[in-house]
Amino acid sequence: MKNNQQNQAPEKFLTVGMLSRRSGVPVSAIHFYERKGLIRSERDASNYRRFPRSVLRVLAVIRVGQGAGIRLEEIRQRLGDAAQSSTLTASDWARISAGWESDLNTRIAALSRMRDRLTGCIGCGCLSMASCPSINPGDRAAGDGPGAPGLDGRV
């Protein structure tokens, strides 16, 4: 015998608990994303929040962005009006992900430099005192500004 739920159309709106279970995002994070303008809800007759089912896709984009290290503000900007529309489309996702590509490539390059130089001197007067005098005599890297120029691509 088939489950009666299989014959029913899915609910158009989800409670915050249903949205949390379906998306894997904690309720507190859902409320936070709503306060930050990343998602929206509506109020029912009892004044309870109800989220359009389309919010599931927006939450997926938020989780992917955060997993890639993208700041919430940038995620919100890239989502733009798409987060408030009835459905986030494949073309919306293509536009959003293309906007992140350059930033991700820059960060990948920086992480690769860090990985490749991690065991050597970072060129800032630092952790490898034995080799720093030959790489950074007289602390000439000080003129390049604060931080570790050997790791952030300035050297």
Rank of each mutant, 00 (worst) to 15 (best):
residue 34 E to Y: 08
residue 26 P to E: 11
residue 78 R to N: 06
residue 53 R to E: 09
residue 152 D to N: 15
residue 152 D to Y: 10
residue 143 G to W: 02
residue 71 R to F: 06
residue 118 L to K: 13
residue 136 N to Y: 08
residue 125 G to M: 08
residue 99 G to Y: 01
residue 5 Q to R: 15
residue 131 S to C: 01
residue 45 A to C: 06
residue 138 G to W: 08
residue 100 W to A: 02
residue 124 C to M: 07
residue 101 E to W: 07
residue 45 A to H: 10
residue 75 I to K: 01
residue 118 L to M: 15
residue 28 S to A: 14
residue 110 A to H: 02
residue 31 H to M: 14
residue 49 R to A: 08
residue 90 A to E: 15
residue 143 G to M: 09
residue 34 E to P: 02
residue 109 A to V: 04
residue 77 Q to T: 14
residue 23 S to W: 08
residue 23 S to C: 11
residue 16 V to D: 11
residue 97 S to K: 04
residue 58 V to P: 05
residue 121 C to I: 04
residue 99 G to L: 00
residue 136 N to T: 13
residue 39 I to V: 13
residue 24 G to M: 10
residue 89 T to Q: 14
residue 69 G to N: 06
residue 133 P to A: 01
residue 131 S to D: 14
residue 86 S to I: 00
residue 12 K to F: 03
residue 3 N to D: 12
residue 155 V to N: 07
residue 48 Y to K: 12
residue 21 R to N: 14
residue 34 E to K: 09
residue 1 M to D: 13
residue 34 E to H: 10
residue 38 L to K: 00
residue 63 R to I: 04
residue 117 R to C: 05
residue 98 A to Y: 03
residue 50 R to A: 10
residue 149 P to W: 12
residue 34 E to R: 06
residue 78 R to D: 05
residue 122 I to S: 04
residue 44 D to C: 02
residue 126 C to F: 06
residue 49 R to F: 11
residue 113 R to K: 10
residue 113 R to Q: 14
residue 37 G to T: 01
residue 65 G to I: 01
residue 120 G to V: 09
residue 73 E to K: 15
residue 43 R to S: 09
residue 78 R to C: 06
residue 103 D to K: 14
residue 116 D to V: 12
residue 66 Q to R: 13
residue 14 L to T: 08
residue 95 R to M: 08
residue 100 W to I: 05
residue 98 A to T: 14
residue 72 L to D: 07
residue 13 F to V: 03
residue 90 A to F: 05
residue 89 T to S: 15
residue 143 G to E: 13
residue 142 A to K: 12
residue 90 A to Y: 02
residue 76 R to L: 07
residue 75 I to S: 05
residue 148 A to D: 08
residue 71 R to K: 12
residue 53 R to G: 03
residue 13 F to I: 07
residue 110 A to V: 03
residue 35 R to I: 02
residue 95 R to P: 05
residue 67 G to N: 07
residue 103 D to Y: 07
residue 143 G to T: 12
residue 103 D to G: 08
residue 51 F to E: 04
residue 86 S to T: 03
residue 132 C to P: 02
residue 111 L to K: 04
residue 26 P to H: 11
residue 82 A to H: 00
residue 98 A to S: 14
residue 107 R to L: 12
residue 47 N to Q: 15
residue 9 A to N: 10
residue 107 R to E: 14
residue 5 Q to E: 15
residue 2 K to L: 15
residue 23 S to H: 03
residue 40 R to A: 07
residue 52 P to H: 06
residue 58 V to C: 03
residue 16 V to G: 13
residue 136 N to I: 07
residue 62 I to C: 13
residue 83 A to T: 01
residue 41 S to H: 06
residue 88 L to P: 07
residue 62 I to P: 01
residue 152 D to W: 10
residue 134 S to P: 00
residue 136 N to G: 05
residue 94 A to L: 09
residue 103 D to H: 13
residue 137 P to R: 00
residue 93 W to H: 01
residue 135 I to Q: 11
residue 142 A to H: 13
residue 135 I to P: 02
residue 15 T to I: 11
residue 134 S to L: 07
